[in-house]
Nucleic acid binder design. Structure first.
Lengths: 89, 89
DNA sequence: CCTATATTTAGATAATTATCTAAATAAGAA
DNA sequence: TTCTTATTTAGATAATTATCTAAATATAGG
């Protein structure tokens, strides 16, 4: 994964809003898509970037793919950002 | 400022490395530039984005402009990221 | 197997961004 | 003022990215 992909993923407003949505719990790609004025293909692309960055996990259940937050990478992020405050590297 | 500019600023590796450098203390644009294989104009552009995001502050002293970390925006960032862990929005 | 639904992948295009060179601005020193 | 140095701004270009439509894949249910 790496911090580069994480920040790239978070640099898009739609993707940050997807994460916000997923705070409420797992949701299918289609359900997530209903909250945004973009095509399913575009939504799939955003989900793919978030997944590649490790920020979300996917879980196929039959026809549906459920996405959920992966908070373990959030820890890594907080650690990086906190490092900015910490003082000399 | 806003979280959008902050994440956009952090989505570039060079800019994150500039912040890393500035952990050691204030530095002029020229000194920062020496650490990267880019032109002065490109460095100026990166510094401008970091400044616009509120991540650094500038302080002209004669011919030089010193840049330094601005940790107050780092707080805002940590808060946003922590919100991902926190539970329902 | 065939059809319908959910999602992704492929390919194209428009917008954004990183970068460069050249020119402009700012400041100190001769 | 003129020259030199530090930095930014302007304008152009190449690379990246967000988005779309159309086609492909995956799965469930007749």
């Amino acid at each position: 994964m790496g911090i580069q992909k994480t920040f790239k993923a978070l640099s898009d407003k739609n993707r940050r809003e997807i994460l916000d949505l997923l705070k409420e719990g797992p949701m299918t790609a289609g359900e997530i898509g209903q909250h945004f004025p973009v095509s399913g293909a575009t939504m799939s692309h955003h989900l793919s970037m978030l997944k590649d960055a490790g920020l979300i996990l996917d879980d196929r259940q039959g026809k549906y793919i459920y996405y959920e937050l992966n908070t373990s990478v959030v820890e890594e992020l907080i650690s990086w950002v906190s490092g900015l405050k910490g003082g000399a590297s």
